[in-house]
Design a protein around this nucleic acid. Structure first.
Length: 872
RNA sequence: GGGCUCUUAGCUCAGUUGGUUAGAGCGUCUGCUUGACGUGCAGAAGGUCAAAGGUUCGAAUCCUUUAGAGCCCA
């Protein structure tokens, strides 16, 4: 036993005194470090946070889950390896750095590529490690020697290798296509980076004069400014309204261009006026229409979405929204505005740029996806990769089955530069991992890769040697949010299947989204997101971890508020005080391992039995990734079984006179307690380490983190002890109930008569202690006393003689209430049993169970009625 | 428009393949300086399981429809 005195252990657990101390201890002793060995591996690759990131509640949930499994498996004899790292987050970082520089009056394009990248690297140095440092406060057991960054030299090379390989296989191509354009970053983005928002806009109806007639054709648009690039007007061939003008031309207002009216089935006759202005350069559908009908393609925007030289002079160089205003004004002034309607539509926004995206034609690099998706679909279909909750498979299948080519080039500077060089004279393309030897004759492609085209190889590229990849890959589980199922999860599976010929992970756990109490997403702008570090400071990391997991059922959103951490804090304190109680006793009572199985009674057998049952339930919950279920299992064992009942029960013997019994009881209690601590440890690492270190003299470097997790011993699950205990619990509860309802304070000792054939000597001792009974006479032939409060539980009758003290009316009410309740239950069961179909249709054991129940209740009811009768 | 998820106590949520009297925490009420813990102990009140219909001996659980909430895709 260590030298800690009871007087030195504070009444309340203080996380601030434990957390940093033990984290340092774990690091100093390399508890989290892993090297390949003979043990089975358990590997997790962290979803690398962006270097722009700060710790959020989402990270808390996500990383706690990873830590719980990493720690649990480590204790269960696996070689746990959790690889941490960060993502360079190409567009996210570039956006931030650009903004940061702008605030200092520095323009990205003025300083140029090289200089800008230097600033990015500075940024990375300054902010890249913040979230990692923050994560450590949470207690995560990552192998910090393995920390990776997606732009580390060797990782960079892996990314480029992957590109070159695919290029050589003909799976990566360059093309002039309409892409989603982010005017803020002046770069293409992928379909997945477009977020659609419902906005309240207008539908403008323009009159276009039809040449050779005095008629107008009316077209409706949500984007008036694009009319400057119109090169046609389309109608449905079956539309009677327009039959006579198909083939005629329209004189495009403002511009004066003559453009054709043509027919295409694509046009929806019901929508608007049934006539559609066609702008092939600035709308995906119009582009297709334009291609089909060989329309001219006129680009009217610069890369920043300002109007270019292809529009009339007086409209040039305007922002698209200013151009819109001027166009609308012109139409109104020239009496060509038919009407303006309110209109709700979905507008695509750039995820990072936070501005509406522009469909834009440009030269980009694409990856062919269909052939990559097939094996990746297969492994999920066949259950080699499993999703939790499974319903996300449907989303995954749907996307993968309808996958389109991936635009992987970005007109950005921060990222993996595309390994393609163009020969200055011959224009010949050179694509290799290393630049051409005569580099002076080449110019390199300016673009960098989509950030996800680097993180998609994360699961294997974090391991540097063949030996390591063989040992750690495939990783065991991936814990991430469903919001990046397309961005990352799907692409990792594709990359794994293609480059490693094997799945990247076996189980994918999709976490919940953390929301505030009103169900809103946590966000900075709403100010509803607590800073996890503040919560850790106020409640402790263990409390936060336990609370978040308790609140987070698999696959459902979590409504979180800081105050909810009271739950975890109180639980930590409960464990603390249970430990304090045992340690306090250990100051006066000798702990003797030889006595661990001596002087066992049913209460000991019961708690050991309960522990093994609990452990089994716990294992099942963890195996099926039901962590919030696991926390509930732990909680009720610790609080209800161990603290409320077991500790209260051993006090009898602990405060007795027999030193050997005292030793045996305390030794056993400590041993169960230690097992319990181990079960809690993956969830609450700090407090469990703190107490575990106090329960015995530990060796230097020893840790609960590396001690062996208890195994279920089925032979110790003891139904007899469970039943004996149940009798005690029921009788004690019944007596307490009477005390409560009769307002008998605990300080007032009472006597109890127990008419029963099922209570033994040991049980009576416990009942007396727990229900604060002075004298307890038990037996089958107990005579009912006159004025008493009574209850019937199981087959026992309880009488508390309280002549002159009890209010007979209250007692009558109490009994009547119980009788009414029982009668209600009985009538239900009788209806069931008198139903011929139930008796013949239901399985025999169910019917038998109902019969037994009926018999017991009938007996109890009879007894209660007699008691009530006697009172009157 | 298509898909997914959800609706159980005042609040937040559990409730395996249909089978005890539908559970827990918080909150509420009552009592308690009980030799670990008031961040605690004991007791109590509180639910027509969103609505309707169906399958079944039996439905919170399975099916259909409706209403409401949220998310994803087009």
């Amino acid at each position: 036993m260590p030298e800690t005195k009871f007087s030195e252990i504070p009444k309340a657990y203080d996380p601030s005194k434990s957390e940093d101390k033990w984290y340092k201890y774990w690091l100093d002793n390399k508890i989290f470090h892993s090297e390949p060995n003979d043990k089975p591996s358990f590997t997790i690759a962290i979803p690398p946070p962006n270097i722009t990131g700060m710790l959020t509640m989402g990270h808390i949930l996500n990383n706690t889950i990873q830590d719980v499994y990493t720690r649990l498996k480590r204790m269960q004899g696996f070689n746990s390896c959790w690889v941490p790292g960060t993502d360079h987050a190409s567009i996210a970082t570039e956006t931030k750095v650009t903004k940061f520089l702008e605030e200092k009056g520095i323009n990205k394009y003025k300083i140029g590529r090289e200089e800008f990248i230097k600033h990015c690297q500075e940024w990375r140095k300054e902010y890249g490690g913040i979230i990692i440092q923050q994560l450590k406060k949470l207690g995560v057991s990552c192998d910090w020697n393995r920390e990776r960054f997606t732009m580390d030299d060797d990782y960079y090379r892996e990314v480029i290798k992957a590109f070159v390989a695919l290029y050589k296989e003909g799976k990566i191509y360059r093309g002039y296509r309409m892409v989603n354009w982010d005017p803020a970053n002046k770069s293409a983005i992928s379909n997945e980076e477009v977020l659609y928002r419902t906005v309240n806009g207008k539908l403008w109806h323009f009159r276009y004069p039809v040449i050779g007639t005095d008629k107008f054709i009316i077209v409706a648009t949500t984007r008036p400014e694009t009319m400057l690039g119109d090169t046609g007007v389309a109608v449905n061939p079956n539309d009677e309204r327009y039959k006579d003008i198909i083939g005629k031309k329209v004189k495009l207002p403002i511009v004066g261009r003559e453009i054709p009216i043509f027919a295409d089935e694509y046009v929806d006759m019901e929508f608007g006026t049934g006539a559609v202005k066609v702008t092939p350069a600035h709308d995906v559908n119009d582009y297709e229409l334009g291609k089909r009908h060989k329309l001219e393609i006129i680009n009217i925007f610069n890369p920043d979405a300002s109007t270019n030289k292809n529009v009339p002079d007086w409209l040039q160089g305007l922002d698209r929204f200013d151009a819109r205003k001027k166009v609308v004004e012109w139409f109104e002034k020239n009496n060509l505005m038919e009407k303006i309607e309110d209109y709700q539509n979905k507008v695509g926004y750039s995820e990072r740029g936070a501005v509406p995206i522009e469909p834009y034609l440009s030269e980009q690099w694409f990856m062919k996806m269909e052939y990559l998706s097939k094996p990746a679909l297969d492994v999920v279909r066949k259950g080699k990769v499993k999703f939790y909750p499974a319903h996300w498979e449907k989303t995954y299948f749907h996307w993968m089955e309808n996958i389109s080519d991936w635009c992987i080039s970005r007109q950005l500077w921060w990222g993996h530069r595309i390994p393609v060089w163009y020969h200055k004279q011959t224009k010949e393309i050179y694509c290799e991992v290393d630049p051409p030897k005569d580099i002076e004759n080449y110019t390199q492609d300016e673009d960098v890769l989509d950030t996800w085209a680097s993180s998609w190889i994360w699961a294997h590229a974090i391991f540097r040697t063949e030996k390591e990849r063989k040992y750690y890959y495939p990783t065991s589980m991936l814990v991430t949010g469903p919001d990046i199922i397309f961005f990352w999860v799907a692409r990792m599976i594709m990359a794994g299947m293609h480059f490693m010929k094997n799945i990247p992970f076996k189980d994918v756990y999709f976490t919940s989204i953390i929301r505030d109490l009103q169900g809103r997403k946590m966000s900075k702008s709403l100010g509803n997101s607590p800073d996890p570090l503040d919560v850790i400071k106020d409640y402790g990391a263990d409390a936060l971890r336990f609370t978040v997991l308790y609140l987070a059922p698999l696959g459902q959103d979590v409504l979180f508020s800081t105050e909810k951490c009271d739950f975890g804090r109180n639980f930590a304190n409960k464990i603390w005080n249970a430990g304090r109680f045992l340690l306090m006793n250990a100051e006066n009572i000798k702990v003797n391992d030889k006595l661990i199985n001596s002087h066992i009674d049913f209460a000991d057998e019961w708690i050991i039995s309960r522990f093994n049952e609990t452990l089994e339930e716990f294992n099942n919950a963890m195996d099926s990734f039901e962590m919030n279920n696991a926390t509930k299992i732990i909680y009720s064992f610790v609080w209800n079984d161990f603290c409320d009942w077991y500790i209260e029960m051993i006090k009898n013997r602990l405060y007795g006179n027999d030193e050997e019994i005292k030793s045996a009881v305390l030794t056993r209690a400590l041993s169960i307690f230690e097992n319990m601590l181990m079960m809690v440890h993956p969830f609450m690492p700090f407090i469990t380490e703190e107490i575990w270190q106090l329960t015995k003299q530990r060796k230097d470097g020893e840790s609960i983190s590396t001690s062996e997790f208890p195994k279920v011993k089925k032979e110790l699950i003891n139904q007899k002890a469970d039943r004996d205990m149940e009798v005690v619990v029921d009788i004690v509860t019944a007596i307490r109930n009477i005390r409560g309802e009769m307002n008998i304070p605990p300080s007032k000792k009472i006597n109890v008569l127990l008419k029963s054939n099922e209570v033994g000597e040991r049980q009576i001792d416990y009942i007396k202690k727990l229900a604060k009974v002075e004298e307890l006479n038990a037996g089958e032939k107990i005579a009912k006393p006159k004025a008493s409060a009574s209850a019937v539980v199981k087959s026992s009758e309880i009488y508390i003689p309280l002549e002159g003290l009890i209010d007979l009316d209250i007692e009558r009410q109490r009994l009547q209430k119980e009788i009414t309740r029982l009668e209600g239950s009985l009538s239900g069961i009788e209806k069931k049993l008198s139903n011929e179909k139930f008796v013949s249709g239901a399985p025999a054991d169910i019917v038998e169970k109902e019969r037994t129940k009926q018999k017991d209740w009938q007996e109890n009811l009879k007894k209660l009625k007699e008691i009530l009768e006697n009172l009157n």
